[in-house]
């Protein structure tokens, strides 16, 4: 009695047989799919941002109801009466001009969705934990926001009004970044929400639309003497 030489080809054998049965086009597609699959653990599906548009200083960008112009990034021990939660830490400050270009009032809280914490700046969360550079826009800590003209907080930004604002994060005391990456994340207009329960608002998309490197101005004392002085 003759026995079968092998009871089953096994997973690799099946894959080999299927691949052999594919035409040239099929093999190319299968190869690309396998490459993407293999790259998945390394961020192949991350929302960031190779196709994000370039962001440079003093260039207006339209985001949701706003036009946002990033002026500069500053590291400081204090901003007026504002100090870091930990006395050893510093403040990382993004200075920007914002104008509401829509015809409805906008909630200034949205600025914290539009400008995520800069990447590579040593930002720490309110618990003092470092924020990984790989954190997505929605995963980074929200800044405090101040109207530079009066050091007060903004609650609403009305149509046609421009403010120069400071967006402020806690920065690790030993961080000395020469430059950071500043991202802008988009907002999506929801005309009619699910079942009409919540309509007409801007929803954070948590997707980086603009990105650029900015020099970090050091604290004035270090600018005069050097950070290691």
């Amino acid at each position: 009695m003759k026995h079968a030489s092998s009871a089953a080809p096994g997973l690799i054998g099946v894959a080999r047989n299927v691949f052999a049965a594919l035409g040239t086009t099929g093999r190319v597609i299968a190869g690309l799919a396998a490459a993407v699959l293999a790259a998945t653990p390394f961020g192949a599906w991350n929302a960031v941002a190779n196709d994000a548009m370039a962001l440079t200083a003093d260039t207006p960008v339209d985001v949701g109801p706003y036009t946002v112009t990033i002026e500069k990034v500053v590291s400081a021990k204090a901003l007026g009466d504002v100090r870091a939660l930990d006395p050893e830490d510093r403040l990382l400050i993004v200075v920007a001009q914002v104008t509401n270009t829509s015809d409805r009032p906008a909630n200034a809280q949205q600025l914290t969705d539009i400008v995520p914490a800069p990447v590579g700046g040593g930002v720490v969360d309110t618990g003092g934990m470092p924020v990984p550079d790989s954190a997505g826009p929605g995963e980074r800590p929200a800044p405090d926001r101040y109207n530079i003209a009066d050091a007060g907080e903004l609650d609403v930004i009305n149509p046609g009004v421009t403010y120069r604002v400071a967006l402020v994060w806690n920065q690790a005391g030993d961080a000395r970044p020469a430059e950071v990456r500043v991202d802008l994340a988009g907002l999506t207009w929801i005309e009619e929400g699910f079942a009409g329960l919540d309509d007409e608002y801007w929803l954070p998309a948590d997707e980086v639309t603009h990105s650029g490197m900015f020099d970090v101005e050091p604290p004035r004392s270090e600018a005069a003497t050097g950070p290691d002085a």
Partner: peptide
């Protein structure tokens, strides 16, 4: 007059 709507603020 341009039908823009402005909200009240709680500042100060």
């Amino acid at each position: 007059s341009r039908e823009r709507v402005h909200a009240a603020t709680d500042r100060s």
